[in-house]
Nucleic acid binder design. Structure first.
Lengths: 146, 146
DNA sequence: CCCGATACCTTGCGCGGCAAGGTATTACAC
DNA sequence: GTGTAATACCTTGCCGCGCAAGGTATCGGG
């Protein structure tokens, strides 16, 4: 038994995958939630954790810097609100500028999803590619190559 | 007239958005194309440019390092092939390991798409949230805040 | 003979996600 | 009253992908 007990190399690979795929979608998810009503940061964490079936889960170290970025660029606005408590909550609302930005994000996202689906559909068809006359002389081996 | 003539700030914002959203999908697209038949690098550039309606367009500086990474991790295998030409082409084939990896990627991608769609659907409904009894006393202003 | 397309490659920067670590409050149990 | 978990906010530093920019060589057509 060696010291490095990394028996499951696939799990961290999945984590890396998920992290890369999630890139950019966090912004879309947060702004979408805020487009309905105002929320405070910690509330967003819970909403995203429970709504997206875990696929949209956001970590604190991701969310708070993101909110600050969105505030700096004027897409959302923050306001501290003490509802009778000593520790106030920081509520965020979408500005009209942010609403326009959200529109762009939605367009880009659906474009990507459509493009991806179209690619997979195209691959599904047994499409005949112009092989410039001289078809495959070497009879391409489609077998596995492990 | 100041020196920086950056009159269109939106276009480069879109570029940034698209770049962040595309994160990870390039790998999925490339492996999907290779799952049908072998391709050489430059060919992949053209296929992705023409198939995905521009949404999946990949730059050379992205593709070649990606192919090398995929080869190093054993998901694809390369072979130089001179078909009667002085400058041979580098063909890539999917290994069985890569096919399994592609399966994982597909699952993650569809999970993300489903999660996103579910989030948007949920927001569409006028869902009643438990406001802990004391409903909004301040009549939350849903108006814009620019 | 030149020029654009083909076909491969690299270096360096920017930026978002996150692990890890920090502080203070609230609430509930015991 | 005391402990402990959840709430609620925050920051620093690393990692890794996408890409602009730049480089080399071949091929085909005018």
């Amino acid at each position: 038994m060696s010291e490095d007990a990394e028996a499951a190399p696939g799990s961290e690979t999945i984590a890396r995958l998920r992290r890369e795929l999630a890139r950019g979608t966090t912004e879309l998810a947060v702004l979408s939630v805020l487009s309905v009503r105002r929320r405070y940061g910690y509330e967003l964490l819970k909403v995203l954790r429970e709504t997206g079936e875990g696929a949209l889960e956001v970590k604190e170290g991701t969310l708070y810097p993101l909110l600050h970025r969105l505030e700096d660029s004027g897409h959302i606005r923050a306001s501290w609100e003490a509802e009778g408590r000593a520790r106030p909550r920081k509520y965020y609302v979408l500005t009209s500028d942010g609403r326009a930005y959200l529109g762009m994000l939605r367009v880009e996202w659906s474009g990507l999803v459509d493009g991806m689906r179209q690619l997979l559909d195209t691959l599904g068809e047994v499409q005949e590619w112009p092989t410039s006359g001289r078809s495959s002389t070497t009879t391409p081996k489609e077998s596995d190559a492990t």
